[in-house]
Design a protein around this nucleic acid. Structure first.
Length: 197
DNA sequence: GCATTAACAGCTA
DNA sequence: TAGCTGTTAATGC
């Protein structure tokens, strides 16, 4: 993980966002490196009918829109806080200087980018070819892998049905039906509406 | 506000 | 045509 104190010495500041606050939006020119210190952020798009597709949900330690910093392109999606969040911001030019002076951070940066690409590849093939149950399993397997919790116990999925639907492109009703089916098959458990996988 | 259920319509194997 | 998924609406939490 990138050292936060060093970022501050390069001129970073800490900004607080409330739920639904926009961090950046589609079409903007990337000007900052963002690192989540506290809270959660979603990356989304809306289709022509206004239906939301969530590209990913980021938690503390993750950087937002990192890949766009290394292109000359505008952001392809919106970044929106979904909890009260604290985010470290460092102007792009300063971030590039920072990387030059701290080459070991390059490695971390590439790791982050690769991790994100891995998620994208997993989800993309799942979204393209698989049935709803497989899409949800792909997503939940990913969540489970990254919640490097020591235990083999069931992980509570801290996402609403609506969020699961937006992450997979399914309708909420289908998510509910599929999840209930998986409970019947013993794949997961539901305890007062909470999903344990 | 989110979750659930049911009735219905459209698609497709 | 049977099964699956999305839409809509009503209802519960």
């Amino acid at each position: 993980m990138i050292n936060e104190d060093k970022l501050f010495s390069f001129g970073a500041d800490l900004k607080t966002y409330n739920p639904d606050d926009l961090i950046f939006s589609e079409g903007e020119v990337p000007g900052f490196f963002f690192l989540i210190s506290k809270g959660k952020v979603k990356l989304n798009n809306y289709n022509e009918e206004g239906k939301e597709f969530i590209q990913g949900i980021l938690s503390p330690g993750h950087s937002i829109g990192l890949s766009s910093l290394f292109t000359e392109k505008t952001y392809p999606l919106n970044a929106v806080a979904i909890e009260e969040s604290e985010i470290i911001r460092l102007p792009k030019s300063q971030f590039l200087k920072f990387l030059k002076q701290h080459p070991e951070s390059y490695f971390t940066t590439i790791q982050c980018l690769s991790e994100h690409m891995h998620y994208k590849f997993l989800m993309m093939q799942s979204m393209a070819f698989q049935n709803p149950a497989q899409k949800l399993l792909t997503l939940m397997n990913y969540l489970k892998d990254h919640h490097h919790d020591q235990s083999e116990d069931a992980l509570q999925i801290l996402l609403t049905r609506k969020q699961l639907a937006s992450l997979t492109g399914l309708s909420v009703e289908t998510v509910i039906r599929v999840i209930k089916n998986m409970e019947k098959q013993g794949i997961l458990k539901i305890k007062n509406r909470k999903i344990f996988y």
